[in-house]
Design a protein around this nucleic acid. Sequence first.
DNA 1: CTGTTAGCGCTTTCAG
DNA 2: CTGAAAGCGCTAACAG
Lengths: 349, 349
Amino acid sequence: MDEKVTQDTPRPRTIEEIAAEIGVSVTTVRLVINGQAERYRISARTRQAVEAYVAKHGYVVDHAGRSLKLRRSDAVGCIVPDLANAHFARLIAQLEERCRNRGLVLLTASTHEKPERERQTISGLLARGVDGIIISPCEQPEPARFVRRGQRNVATVVIDRAFPKTLFPTVVGDNEASARRLTGQIMAESGGDVFFLCARPEMPSIAARIAGFTDAFGAAGASERLLTDPEDDSASSGHRLMADLLARLGRPPKSFISSSLLILEGAIQALVDRFGSVPRDIILGTFDYHPLMELSSNRVLSVRQDTLRIADVAFTCLVDAMEKGSDEASSPVHVIPGALFADRQRLPE
Amino acid sequence: MDEKVTQDTPRPRTIEEIAAEIGVSVTTVRLVINGQAERYRISARTRQAVEAYVAKHGYVVDHAGRSLKLRRSDAVGCIVPDLANAHFARLIAQLEERCRNRGLVLLTASTHEKPERERQTISGLLARGVDGIIISPCEQPEPARFVRRGQRNVATVVIDRAFPKTLFPTVVGDNEASARRLTGQIMAESGGDVFFLCARPEMPSIAARIAGFTDAFGAAGASERLLTDPEDDSASSGHRLMADLLARLGRPPKSFISSSLLILEGAIQALVDRFGSVPRDIILGTFDYHPLMELSSNRVLSVRQDTLRIADVAFTCLVDAMEKGSDEASSPVHVIPGALFADRQRLPE
DNA sequence: CTGTTAGCGCTTTCAG
DNA sequence: CTGAAAGCGCTAACAG
């Protein structure tokens, strides 16, 4: 009746509709659509009929039906403390790229360091039937939370935070070693007048950085140069820590290290609030890198994580676990070395 | 047989399993699980039986089955040029928050300004059955690409880029007005020696900024102060533009405006490459804000978008379109005013 | 080479 | 107040 559909009609069809309209079976249609026409030697005529139809009207699979049948969603979830954080944003961008290449789709969510939210998010993703989860957890990840209907646990990879004896494959930066190098360098340059500002010291990644700092500084006196704030990793935390430090010293420190970009931001604002600008001779040490740091005329020593490799390794582990089955996958901790930069120059090991 | 499942057994059950195990019908189970026990006056006994079972073994819906039946996924997609870009990362973080509050899940993807990828992504999301799409498009968004099986078009909201006569609701910053203000201010402060560095001038948001710049500068001479690069918005673009400018002038400009943070980053690196550091007296003008700018001892004039409100309005539009049906929804262009800051201080209108 | 059929887990009538 | 049955679109096993 409506022969005159010019080019592509809006409404995509189901396999059944296509089969009915060109008078073949769903199997046939499915085989040519899925490119298995060769393998099953579908006759050229029928194949062309299907192809013509699809070319004209288009066809997109309905993943709902597909997932239901296959018990597989071709989706993976990524849970991080904060999507807006540059480090995680980069990571997600990298992961999305890799997912796309494998026909996977990425679901993202932030926890804002709230265990309760983290749990809800995990079970939300599970309800969605994700085939894998990459998580930067804010509490010890319990395998019991990652169980999927019917099957074994979802493939899970932990990033960024190596909680003690985690059962999942884990990919982290070499926080302790980096902190040691950074601290050593900054002490050499500042004559030892250095402070370490950090939030959430109980998080494994931060704990490792603290350990590296303490080690390099020397146990004696390190503790009073370590300013911690149990709160959320945030600019306001950094502001508070720096304000406290300034109050205590009555002068700017010769150098300080911040445990994250957000802490650095806050610390800088506190310095600007107090002195009108960042005193030029302070040496800034920081974890995580952002190109805008280059704006500073201060000396900046930064530890840059190898986000690309972290994403790579994490994704590889995930795919591995998805294929092997999460339970059989080994659970190594992959430590990805970072690089120490002085301004724009990479320092040799 | 296995009576002794202590607390929570791993494998979540289906509604049918639950019904079978406690000897009632699926309808009954579903009613109490969905909290409709009251409405249908399920007897206290059966309800408690179900509740006890669920408390013990847990239950999470399977969205695959649910979506298939309801033709609705409770998922929305967000497509942006680059997830790692601070502006979009913030936006996504805000959107995810709002989605979570409504029981929606967010799928994210970047296009890297490639129309081909954008199209694939759209149809990928459609195949996933998303109920809505928020997109910052890199080409004119054709309604024909947003058709969903069976029903009308997916609810769609365009952000960031107002392509001419778009049929979808659109939420953008007030690029032209902001550019006019920024240019006026920077000219006043630099005596008129200003240049505008931008990538992808044909993108509507950039075009609007150029229009504002040209308008404020005065048509005469504006064109030779406008440096554009058709390529991807990127640091390397910014580097090239600034390098060209320096070659042309033989000296640093008194001030320049960059159309994005990435351009700014590149421009800064070019300055550092050439002069060893960013000459202190250059006034920096830029769109999009990042707290690390504070690090600069240069004067910084920045236009800050109201990301939070953009996310709010966009999400509201989306929900609206999802409820009303995309086709009937009106397609207004919402212009969200930005704010002009000089260093850390907001300038009055 | 092609067709038939059952069933994934859920919701929704429609009957009791 | 509760149960039975159909069907969303897809795939896989089995028949021809």
